[in-house]
Amino acid sequence: MTEPWWISLIKAFLIINLVMLAFAYTTLLERKLLGRMQLRYGPNRAGPYGSLQPIADLIKLIRKESFFPSSAIDLPYIVAPVISMFTALAAFSVIPFGAGWHLWHWHVDGEIANVSIALIVVFALGSLGIYGFIIGGWASESKYSLLGSMRTCAQLVSYEVSLALSVLGVVLMAGSLSLVDIVHKQGTTIPYAAPQVIGLLCFFVAGIAETNRAPFDLPEADTELVAGYHTEYSGMRWGLFQTAEYINMITLSALMVTLFFAGWHGPYAPLGPLWFFLKLLAVVSIFIWLKATLPRLRYDQLMRFGWKVLLPVATLNAVVTAALVVAF
């Protein structure tokens, strides 16, 4: 009952493009929502309601000269955004967005790749993506970039621990590392947001830090480090970094929907991917809302919070869940 390879290929192609489209319109959504929260309109010139703005941005970025500092180290400097972009896109491949369908006499899965250790794959790819940020900042040979890189390194590595621990409860309850299994299990019982509310909160906070979003956007704190690790990047190379970041955010939101909000299952109608999309939209909007509201944390406060608050809470949550799972 597996799907033929060419269906996977077509699906992968479609999903990559859909994710890219989602990224483009996330930027528009962010600018629109931020604008509304800040007594502005946001982009409204390119197309109706500014709907062509992402396209215009893309054209502008591609046409822009991608110059780089003469002291930059060529190869890592150019490869860094590619690494980030690649891992960001690859991580989405294991996210299930539908139950799977029968088209004529072929079976189509609701995800690109059904991996039995999907959760680990997502985290592994996320960790690899950090290399892009670190290498990019380091290869730029700029002090601001270096500082940004240092912050990225420290922040992402510390919060990844909490992020992984916070989902342990879900894994224990579902008894599987496969995201498809986790969603199926939630479909038959309840979304894990209810029993794993502490895990959810930990995951959300760590996730914000993982994706460099406010209030944890220290690696690119514009008022401190100009633009952090991508200070010296311009044109589409900068665009790739930006794309990687937004796709990371989308992937993380998708992971959150999958792990805690029952993925494509919805309360009323079996809409499948549409439910998934709506939940994703809600989570992404919360990310944007936070950016409009909260000031930025300081570096030491961030580290303190990560190691002294988030990590113990996430660990405790995992331990308690494990005890309860064994007990019942």
Binding site: L34, M37, Q38, L39, R40, A214, P215, D217, A221, T223, K291, A292, T293, L294, P295, R296
Partner: peptide
Amino acid sequence: LELGAISMFWY
């Protein structure tokens, strides 16, 4: 704005 509370600027 400098401390990251960007909306404060517009308010």
